[in-house]
Amino acid sequence: MTGYAEIAEHFRKRIKDGELAPGDPLPPVRQISQQFDVAGTTTNRAFAVLKREGLIKTKPGAGTVVAHRPAVSATGLARLERLERTGDPYASGETSTGHRVMLRSCADPDIADQLGIEPHEEVVIRSSVFVRDGKPTKFVIAAYNTAATHAVPELSDDARGVTKHWKQRHRERTGRDINASPEVISARFASNDELAAFGLQDVPSHVAVPVLVVEVTYHDEEGPLAYWADVHAPGQKWENDARSK
């Protein structure tokens, strides 16, 4: 028997995948109750959950509609899960800019350890800035070791779309699935590059700007492949609907 949690999850995914955009009306309670063969009270409980999450709201004359949430930013795992469900890594109203691809020495010993390499070995760095409703929401940086780039050499190219097909191409060429480690969440002060990405380069040097950082490592059965970090802009809320696997 379907419960209110399942109904809430159904609409939660449709909203976060962009099938229902801000301002779109939800079906009437009676229609949803008939669709899921539940009582109206069950549907109302599902709506109450979604309202508490800020996903929907009641609008006079329009009923229940999808809420506008400009300050919410998804994590890397959530983007990949959305990509696998819908073929699109972007949320409604979201895009990315400032795409860069570089071959660099990995000077950070912690990142080198995550990638299973020695410090100062070369890695491919890909970075971009995610923008939603005209405002930067996060600075995304990814480091790929040679195991990843040997299987998917396109990662070294200056192409926007290659990252979203990376897991699929790796699986097709190696027969190995890519899995994600649990996300590690921390806070620190933004670097100069991150301040520039967020349009805050004019902040006085004596002012420290805190940012939230969400890190994840991807690997297959033979070892680590990539390290991703999402640096969320100041004032942003973030969410992760993905399940590590």
Rank of each mutant, 00 (worst) to 15 (best):
V131T: 11
L83V: 05
L55A: 00
T97A: 13
A91C: 08
V65G: 09
E222R: 11
Q34Y: 09
L212C: 08
A78V: 03
W166G: 03
I32D: 05
V131W: 05
A74G: 13
Y218E: 10
V101Y: 09
L225R: 01
P234E: 06
Q236V: 02
H150C: 10
K57F: 08
R188K: 08
G87N: 08
T95Y: 09
A143E: 05
V209R: 00
P22I: 02
F198E: 10
R243Y: 07
F198M: 05
K138W: 00
T137I: 13
E215H: 00
R52W: 01
P204R: 12
G161T: 08
S191I: 00
T75M: 04
D177T: 09
V213M: 12
L200E: 02
A46C: 01
P182W: 05
D37C: 06
K59H: 08
D88H: 08
F47H: 14
G40R: 13
D37I: 12
V162Y: 03
S181K: 10
E84Y: 08
T146H: 10
W238Q: 08
A21K: 15
V124Y: 03
T137F: 00
G116K: 07
P22R: 07
P210Y: 05
L212H: 11
K164H: 10
V29L: 03
A147Q: 11
M1H: 12
A242K: 06
G23N: 05
S181M: 14
A107H: 13
V152M: 03
R45E: 07
R100V: 12
T58K: 15
T64Y: 06
A242H: 03
V72F: 12
G87T: 04
N240D: 15
P119D: 05
E9P: 00
E194T: 15
W228R: 00
F130T: 10
L225M: 02
V184W: 10
D37G: 10
S127I: 02
L212T: 14
R30M: 11
A190Y: 03
A208T: 09
D202V: 06
A187Y: 12
F198S: 07
V65N: 06
T42E: 08
L77G: 15
V124H: 07
H150P: 00
E84R: 13
A67M: 07
L103S: 14
A180I: 03
S73F: 02
A46R: 10
H120Q: 11
G199D: 05
G18L: 02
A142D: 02
T146Q: 11
S186E: 14
A229S: 14
G76L: 06
P28R: 13
D110L: 14
G134H: 01
S191T: 15
A229R: 15
P70T: 06
V209K: 07
D220Y: 07
T43D: 01
K51I: 01
D177Q: 08
L225Y: 08
T2K: 14
Q31F: 04
V66H: 04
D158W: 03
A196W: 04
